[in-house]
Design a binder for these strands. Structure first.
Lengths: 392, 392
DNA sequence: GCTGATATGTTTCACACTGTAACAAAGTCT
DNA sequence: AGACTTTGTTACAGTGTGAAACATATCAGC
């Protein structure tokens, strides 16, 4: 299959057309939009013999299996097809956490191994080596062919897997995808952490017809966008880098040198800090857990801090919706114990800031993946790159 | 050629592959990236015989012509090829102005006829009829085959040419592209006015590698986005509809019922109104011309109003850049006589609101097309739809 | 001025893929 | 049981690309 992550003029030959059709069949099957050769032909618009041939190749490779016979509809009963999710395995790596987390899983995301490696401050070449090592360790344990390696990392990442800038990891213009491919012999896909998160949410959220945004709020703040069914990285791979957008000129100082960046208002340390300040407590060492904070600082202080953050987030999301027109927004909040109340604050502000009709159609949720969101995103990078599959 | 404006699973056959390659050749030639069969083969990656065949078809259709012989580079000299911009004509219609403006022009945009038709309040079915009429009037005057009709309209427009909502024109869920195609017999492309503007600016701005935003400021405010080389319409065709985003909660009342919408701060009527208020004058009947306003209201009042609008616009653009990461922004301001000073205010705010490195790489210009920007956009809709040509 | 080298453009042919038509297979309905 | 329907396959024609060889036209060097 295609190793993905190239750009530029691509020639259309009969062979490349075949790849397109092959992916189309696999994607349609994976999405559950068809379950037999005949229904595949109807859904994809291809002729039945063509589908037969493509399915034959997928059966050969093991990616698809015949799983029984369907009920007849007045004629010969169809032979049911399904993607064999255990036919390949995937190495997924989440570099947004330190130590990094890596898993070996099948196509459905069922884990068979998990590693957490590296000190909290491993960076630069040593981090590259650590990544290569963990792949070299996990890949041989696979009980099925390994489809590839997916890496989700903070920082700016181009479509072809070059980490333009990841200050915290000490990486600049690092051709990570190529390096991994060379040193591990496996195809590799590298993406920004929020982008990867957006990809996996896009694949699993029913409502996300062709657009979705994921907003990650942890130490920093970042967003990932799927627009028109594709990851949107931006001209400089900086799309969704909203953490250091100044939303309160003259506000609190930020690590970047400016004042009033979004991160100074809605990052988890900021929220915790606000709550501590309201309660007159020392912010240091406080847990990233709203329930625990309420016990220590009192309901009111925590509530006020969350209100402030939710309002600011809602205003930012209103801008996001007005500009790119996504209808699904998924939040990944590293502050535990935050629920519906916070979401309501966000939604209320969002609606207030948009035209009434506009705001009503926007859905804001919390992610269902919890802290493993990015890891699943790394997994989804491989699915999308190697098979064109949006859903796991 | 393809009538464009469809969506969904598209089958890849050898014939569709040929269309892709044919467009690739034409686009490469139109962009000036190649000028002979051999150079086309190099740039597009196709084999020389393939290029010869495709070029033969383009020569047959008259779209491309042999324009001479190039200088030899140690071998047989190449036979130079060029797109024949007078081989086709295009009907372009701008519905953002009342009365509407329609032109007949060749592919380069050279006009051979121009009509302004309809009263200032023509709407609904009568406006549809007026559009059909103007096409029926212009098309027969063409001295070359008409490639199609391009319509740029305010409101929400889907990719397949359905006007979902255009309140001022009295249109709701109007399948305008299909209607025009049926009643005029010509292929038609319909797009949002700001989107069309973005398309033509994208085609002609050298700096816009793969992303660009056009922000239109007139009676209302709207933006058009080209992302990753494609028009971005959004999930509900509402991308770039930033006019009624609330940026000053509790601010001035807006026609939409809310308060503090962006339009209440930076639309031309708002700017004029602000200047009038500062000078203690009656805003009614004032001209949309900064120079004239300075004479009537004094430098200071106009300067202050422009400063306020420029600052607010800069803040909005900072959000735009942080979210979608475009590096080129083109402004279309219907207030005459506004120049570099205003742009500097916008740029300064933009840079202040972004990370220093980020802001430096963003280019903000005024459009060079003046009031005909949207008309050229409508023209570009046809070029893009019928030929896949980004540049006129 | 002739010869070899070089780049352009065309012809010929093999190869790959899709779609149509016809057919076999395995059910349902009357 | 026989007609009908739907599924899946086989055979073949049509269309398109690419590789190799070839014709063509110029430059460079002797």
């Amino acid at each position: 299959m295609d190793t993905g992550q190239r750009r530029g003029t691509r020639v259309a030959s009969s062979q490349s057309a075949r790849q397109v059709n092959l992916r189309s069949v696999l994607r349609t099957l994976a999405a559950g939009e068809a379950d037999s050769r005949a229904s595949l032909a109807r859904v994809t618009g291809m002729a039945r013999p063509t589908v037969t041939r493509l399915v034959a190749e997928l059966l050969d490779s093991g990616l698809v299996a015949e799983v029984g016979t369907g009920s007849s509809d007045g004629g010969k009963p169809p032979r049911l097809l399904a993607v064999n999710r255990s036919a390949r395995q995937v190495v997924a790596i989440d570099l947004s956490r330190r130590p990094l987390v890596a898993t070996l899983a099948d196509l459905a995301g069922t884990e068979s191994a998990r590693h957490t490696v590296g000190g909290a401050h491993t960076a630069g070449d040593r981090l590259v080596a650590a990544v290569v090592d963990v792949v070299s360790d996990l890949a041989p344990r696979a009980t099925a062919p390994v489809a590839g390696v997916g890496v989700a990392t903070p920082g700016l990442v181009t479509r072809d897997g070059v980490v333009v800038e990841a200050a915290n990891l000490g990486w600049h213009d690092l051709r990570l995808a190529s390096i991994l491919q060379e040193r591990t012999g496996l195809p590799a896909w590298v993406g920004n952490d929020a982008d990867a998160a957006a990809l996996v949410e896009y694949g699993t959220r029913a409502g996300a017809s062709d657009g979705l945004a994921v907003v990650r709020i942890g130490r920093g703040v970042g967003a990932g966008l799927v627009l028109a069914g594709r990851l949107h990285a931006g001209a400089r791979a900086a799309a969704g880098e909203i953490g250091h957008l100044v939303v309160e000129p003259g506000g609190h100082p930020c690590s970047c040198g400016n004042r009033g960046c979004l991160e100074t208002v809605i990052s988890v340390p900021s929220i915790v800090g606000q709550a501590a300040a309201a309660a007159g407590a020392d912010p240091a060492g406080l847990p990233w857990d709203a329930t625990a904070l309420r016990h220590r600082l009192g309901d009111e202080a925590v509530h006020a801090a969350l209100q402030a953050a939710g309002t600011r987030l809602g205003a930012m999301l209103a801008h996001l919706v007005a500009i790119v027109d996504v209808t699904e927004i998924v939040l990944s909040l590293e502050l535990e114990g935050v629920g519906e109340e916070f979401l309501e604050t966000v939604r209320t502000t969002l609606v207030e800031r948009l035209l009434p009709i506009d705001g009503e159609q926007i859905f804001v949720h919390l992610t269902d993946y919890g802290p493993d969101l990015i890891l699943h995103g790394a997994h989804a990078l491989v699915l999308a790159g190697a098979f064109g599959m949006a859903r796991p």
